[in-house]
């Protein structure tokens, strides 16, 4: 009996050592997995350009048409559009695209088109400012957009005092690729 007990004891010890090796290996694998997952998650860049482009588009929209009325600086009493607003578009809408102290191009682009009666074939008036070289990047497919600019389109209908209806399309683009991508 004692011999049997001793033998059983011996077998249990060997079994325990074998299990502890596997258990240690599992712990290491789990720890490595968690570290990799956490580093992948926190290593991703925090990209806010989508929200930034949305805010930019909304700000331009509010500048042009607010409370059901056109900005009086855009539309003249005859119902036409004023060219001097286009020339001072950024200042009129309290926007500053300039990077101070640098020679780089502005990291934004805004284009506003006014389409009479919702006819998208030709806009009767267009305002734009910023880095227009980015506009072609907006038509690139989603899978290839990883390190390109972020584009947002916004459109709404607006009515002048003379009851002319315009479809206003706003394209806002935010660059800042280095700050928002790996």
């Amino acid at each position: 009996m004692i011999k049997k007990i001793n033998t059983l004891k011996g077998i249990n010890k060997k079994g325990d050592k074998l299990i502890s090796v596997y258990w240690f290996a599992i712990l290491v694998i789990v720890a490595i997995g968690i570290v990799l997952m956490v580093n992948t998650f926190y290593g991703e860049n925090y990209d806010v350009r989508s929200q930034e482009a949305e805010i930019l588009a909304q700000k331009v929209a509010d500048c042009i048409y607010f409370g059901g009325e056109f900005n009086s600086l855009i539309v003249n009493p005859q119902g036409g559009f004023r060219e001097d607003f286009n020339d001072n578009f950024l200042k009129m809408c309290n926007l500053n695209f300039t990077i101070e102290g640098g020679l780089e191009r502005p990291p934004y682009y805004v284009e506003v088109g006014f389409f009479p009666d919702g006819d998208l074939k030709k806009s009767s008036f267009t305002m734009l400012d910023g880095n227009k070289n980015w506009k072609p990047d907006c038509s690139v497919g989603v899978s290839q957009r990883a390190n390109l600019v972020t584009c947002k389109e916004k459109e709404f209908f607006a009515v002048t005092k003379s009851d002319s209806v315009y479809l206003i399309k706003i394209l806002s683009i935010v660059g800042k690729i280095d700050e928002n991508t790996n």
């Binding site: 930019l56 950024l90 309290n94 926007l95 695209f97 990077i99 990291p107 800042k176």
Partner: peptide, 8 residues
């Protein structure tokens, strides 16, 4: 640092 476009 991060640039903002609001002229304010």
């Amino acid at each position: 640092k991060y640039h903002f476009f609001n002229y304010i």
